[in-house]
């Protein structure tokens, strides 16, 4: 920062500090609010206090007491993990080919994947609904995994090919000269170096699948494949007059946890500069 803004004066430091604090507070208040709501009992839910008067785990007990939420949680995890795994494996292969090889139709492939990434998903909902119903995929795991892979693949290909381009090609030539087959060169030299890229991509794809609401609500109808974001919208209180806000808040907190864990777990592997030292510099 000092390089861009000139000398780092105390006034500047303070200015930045205040600005950063404001941004962080602005971003965190809604999250804290949800957390706060989730710990309130149904009586104090709408008392307007930011910090709950009396803490209760009532909402958490509620959501885990029925299969509605737990089943959705299993669906969400299963669908997102499978879709992520498949998208990353195929994305890695495609990205490697795009970054390294010249083949006919390469530009077409890149163009089509960009097109898919930009395509308004909402316009695909009705056709997908019809197709999946006639194929018997409606309200099944594959029925969600397939569209997720479709939209996650372009994302994976773009992120990964950027990473592959960063890896000096000479490393691969060196591996070949050292006696490696193309497969060995990829497994033992390129893949370990691309690992941070693969993890980054996995996180992005996982978050995309985990957060999706549009496909999940249109292509499911029962608990069998309903994911958490959809299940949340179906929450009702125990009676018609009861406000489900507390349960929704608790569920929202629960589904945020995997994402946070996921990022924390892989963050260590996303170390910049892993390739430094390969070539001069």
């Amino acid at each position: 920062m000092a390089g861009i803004g000139g000398a780092e004066t105390p006034a500047k430091k303070w200015g930045w500090g205040v600005l950063n604090t404001v941004v962080v507070i602005y971003a965190l208040i809604p999250v804290l609010w949800i957390v706060s709501l989730s710990f309130k009992s149904s009586k104090t839910l709408s008392d307007g206090n930011f910090i709950p008067r009396e803490w209760s785990l009532e909402n958490y007990q509620n959501i885990f007491s029925t299969s509605e939420f737990t089943r959705a949680l299993i669906n969400s995890i299963g669908i997102a993990v499978i879709a992520t795994a498949i998208a990353v494996v195929f994305g890695t292969m495609a990205a490697y080919a795009i970054a390294r090889l010249e083949f006919p139709g390469k530009n077409l492939l890149v163009g089509v994947s960009l097109l898919i990434a930009m395509f308004p998903q909402v316009s695909l909902v009705s056709p997908l609904f019809e197709i999946e119903r006639s194929l018997g995929l409606f309200d099944t795991w594959p029925g969600l995994i397939l569209p997720y892979i479709t939209f996650a693949l372009p994302l994976a290909i773009y992120t990964l090919s950027a990473f592959f381009r960063e890896i000096p090609w000479e490393l691969e030539k060196a591996a070949k000269m050292d006696g490696a087959t193309p497969g060995q060169a990829f497994r033992r030299v390129i893949a370990p170096l691309a690992a941070p890229g693969v993890f980054t991509t996995a996180i992005l794809v996982f978050i995309f699948c985990w957060n999706d609401f549009l496909f999940a609500i249109s292509l499911t109808s029962t608990e069998q494949s309903r994911t958490v974001p959809v299940a949340l919208s179906f929450f009702t209180g125990s009676s018609q007059f009861e406000d489900p806000a507390g349960s929704i808040a608790a569920a929202a907190v629960v589904i945020t946890i995997p994402i946070i864990l996921f990022v924390l777990f892989f963050q260590r592997r996303i170390v910049a500069g892993l390739t430094s030292g390969a070539v001069k510099g």
Partner: peptide
């Protein structure tokens, strides 16, 4: 072969 950039495996 010895490369101009050395091409050492950084990992």
């Amino acid at each position: 072969m010895v490369f101009q950039s050395y091409a050492l495996y950084p990992h």
